[in-house]
Nucleic acid binder design. Structure first.
Lengths: 324, 324
DNA sequence: TTGTAAGCGTTATCAA
DNA sequence: TTGATAACGCTTACAA
């Protein structure tokens, strides 16, 4: 039951048990080759019988040594967009035999700062983070003094580098497709979010003169999105750009309520987007690519390589809903 | 650029800078109260100007000290079911100011063992893990000698305790609802998976005499699931129990292909299950509860409290698809 | 090839 | 209340 309460055997215990010096055990454990075979045997036996496991935390406190752990701060692990980022980052870490500590900021600057500080204190080797809107800068700056910090999804001026999607370009491309059906409406969330501002910027650039009645920035919740979509449709929109997946779902719900469907392109892919009828087209930042590139940049920075900002081109997945 | 290359200031540096003893800084950093205010001031100043961050990894190597990190091994972070487990566990950890290292086993016993070993080596305080089908026992047993190990989703005989859902009961309840419409078909994955075997067991118990033609255990991929569902329907099923969400999606696709819909209850909730028409009913192990209870059990074990196996009752979410 | 001794950054002991 | 001094489990000179 309380088996684990017993003091864990140390490298010293192994050395004593095997009747060799401490350093020889260290060599063995670290896979160094120059060890007499019979000693190696004895050490292996001692490790086995004692149930010895090396203490990586202890090994890593020496300067120049790394912990083999990467930190990741995303918005919310429960959101498919973010969990996809995390999964991709985890995969890159696993290939390099690193662990990943994942934390959710809930887009709260204070929580973000606390998590970033904690991760630095825990001595993760590098930090991949989605800076929340607002005053994240000091937290990033602080972390940056100790470890490489890669900002993803949104840029951060203090990060080692930033990897973001071309949200603006994605919106422009979507509008270019929708425009032929008539006035394009826009349903999105607050412009305080960098991604939203970028997407709206792309929309505005593509439509030329923005008709404010065709635009909604208050799709904060699903209900808000439903209302916003209804408003935009009633104002005369003949096609809709929904600037995130909540807005897209709300718009779909509004279509159902009104018994009328308009050409629609959403933003951010969502599960089952391909299952509803017609399948929903989306301009989608490939979240997996974000996570993967972020982790890769972290490893590059750790290896001392130069890392540069990246802007990943958004794919436009046309599945059918962009047509009348 | 390479700001972080500089050697990080240590507690000793702070002590020297503030002109106080090492232990006094330690006291200050650990929030102990018996410190002369003026010394506290000097220390705070030194910490600020030096940009000192304490090294939690170094602090935790002392026996009896904990790392403040919990390990979690799930099937795949990219799967909403598992990411929901992770998110719930993370939330419980965050409340207790702990970090969570999440790793995906991909249901591979070897990968699982490697991850469990690594997490123990990294000295996480406790391990919450989903044991993959097959020979996980030795890995759990090994980890168990060092730290509490909580098995979730599936039982493990070597774990400190196991927290699972009543899959059998959920399947029985679902069949009880579907039965009135005629022969109930079953679409699921291999019985080598503990959860599948339990669900199928519940199905078999509820239908009494199983008609093998109405049963498919080969829904490994979405395509397989589509084929399996078609077979079961053609064999005369008048209602379907889909034993995981892939099976449910495949069955929905088959309905669409055939232009015919049967009463359906799925297993494991999925995003947008409530959005498709009609909304899909599911017998759902509340994955969030699994993660939360798992983490809570880990903390209980760490606190020296007795922990016991738990079987969480599955909820049956009837949304409409269970009717003709 | 092997082992001793000196750290690494922190916490704990204990005498001042 | 304070601060030498000794751990903690490991790695790394440096000898042997």
């Amino acid at each position: 039951m309380t088996e684990h309460a017993r003091r864990a055997p140390t490298m010293n215990d192994v050395a004593a048990h095997a009747g060799v010096g401490l350093k020889t055990v260290s060599r063995y454990v670290n896979g160094e080759t120059n060890i007499r075979p019979d000693l190696a045997q004895r050490i292996a036996g001692a490790i086995e019988t004692l149930g010895y496991r090396r203490n990586l935390a202890a090994a890593s406190i020496r300067p120049g040594q790394r912990s083999g752990v990467i930190g990741l701060i995303i918005g919310d692990l429960g959101n498919p967009y973010w969990s996809s980022v995390a999964r991709a980052a985890e995969r890159v870490c696993a290939e390099r035999r690193h662990l990943l500590v994942t934390a959710s900021s809930e887009e709260d600057p204070e929580r973000f700062a606390a998590l970033a500080d904690r991760l630095v204190d825990q001595r993760v080797d590098a930090l991949v983070a989605v800076p929340p809107p607002g005053a994240e800068s000091s937290a990033v700056e602080r972390a940056r003094r100790h470890i490489p910090v890669i900002a993803i999804d949104r840029p951060s001026p203090h990060a080692t580098c930033s990897i973001v999607y071309d949200n603006r370009g994605g919106a422009e491309a979507a509008v270019a497709v929708l425009r032929e059906h008539g006035p394009v409406g826009y349903v999105g969330d607050t412009l305080a979010m960098w991604t939203m501002a970028e997407r709206y910027g792309g929309y505005a650039a593509a439509v030329g003169a923005v008709d404010e009645r065709l635009v909604a920035h208050d799709a904060h919740t699903m209900d808000d999105a439903i209302g916003a979509a209804a408003r935009v449709i009633e104002a005369g929109a003949r096609a809709i750009l929904a600037a995130n997946n909540r807005a897209a779902l709300g718009t779909l719900r509004t279509f159902a309520d009104r018994g009328e469907r308009l050409p629609l392109i959403g933003f951010d892919d969502f599960e089952l987007a391909s299952v509803v009828n017609p399948p929903v087209s989306v301009a989608t930042p490939d979240s997996a690519a974000l996570g993967a590139r972020g982790a890769l940049a972290a490893f590059a920075a750790l290896a001392g390589e130069a890392v540069a900002d990246e802007v990943l081109a958004p794919g436009l997945l046309l599945r059918g809903s962009e047509r009348p």
